[in-house]
């Protein structure tokens, strides 16, 4: 039943809805282009995409493969379409499997996680939709000072917090990574990377990401860091 009936249905509809979502996710970008006629420079868009690809490209593949054993086939389609995987979908799926008394990784576990993730999607969309309509007017009504502060100082705190969150598991890798990234950023700020073509942002990102991965791998091979899984 599960393999012959449920999974083929999920694969068919999972693929169709995901590809449709890829197309529709261009909505705002296309609205800016057609309705407002804002044409960003091709070089900037390509540069932006390449920077993201260098920063997150490996994660595009590693994340689905890493979470797949927990999420199962339906959960993988749903979680990567709806986002917020580690902070929302995984905890919801795990809690539901626990309370419905089914085992993770089994067909029954996968049915329950599908149902739980669907429930979490309805909740997330409802709360964020109500919330955004409440928050946007609040933000627009704020005095200039408050708006500037939100625009400038929320983001650094988030970056710091997320770095700390990942760094907790591997403090040594975090320390070396920060040294690499900070040196590269300072080199760029003081113009030492000016010999590279274009805005040398990509060089800083490339060295930071792959340098840190390399250091992490070396430390792991030499037994300097431990993995618990």
């Amino acid at each position: 039943m599960y393999e012959s009936n449920f999974i083929p249905y999920i694969n068919r509809w999972g693929r169709a809805t995901s590809l449709l979502a890829v197309a529709l996710s261009f909505g705002p970008a296309l609205a800016l282009l057609t309705v407002f006629e804002i044409v960003p420079p091709t070089g900037a868009v390509v540069g932006g995409f390449l920077s993201v690809a260098v920063t997150f490209g490996l994660i595009w593949f590693i994340e689905p493969i890493s979470y797949y054993p927990v999420l199962g086939i339906p959960g993988t389609y749903m979680a990567f379409l709806s986002g917020n995987i580690s902070n929302l979908r995984l905890p919801c799926a795990a809690a539901a499997q626990e309370s419905a008394d089914v085992e993770a990784g089994t067909p029954r576990g996968s049915i329950i996680s599908t149902i739980a993730i669907a429930g979490s999607i309805f909740v997330n969309i409802t709360i964020l939709t109500v919330g955004v309509f409440a928050l946007v007017p609040v933000f627009e009504a704020m005095p200039e000072f408050g708006r500037n502060a939100l625009e400038s100082y929320l983001v650094p705190a988030i970056f710091g917090a997320i770095f700390a969150q990942f760094g907790r598991d591997y403090p040594k890798v975090a320390a070396v990574g920060l040294c690499i990234a900070l040196s590269m950023t300072l080199l760029m700020e003081f113009g030492f990377l000016a010999f590279l073509p274009g805005l040398p942002l990509y060089a800083v990102i490339l060295v930071s990401v792959f340098g840190t991965i390399y250091v992490a791998k070396l430390m792991w091979q030499n037994g300097m860091i431990e993995t618990d899984s």
Binding site: L58, I59, A181, Y214, K217, W220
Partner: peptide, 26 residues
């Protein structure tokens, strides 16, 4: 190499966010 995967993922995330944090620091 089951255990290398989380190491590579963490390395990539740490490198990326070290870059964003450095941008804020400077």
């Amino acid at each position: 190499r089951n255990k290398l995967l989380p190491v590579v993922t963490s390395g990539a995330m740490l490198g990326a966010f070290a870059y964003f944090v450095s941008g804020e620091f400077t």
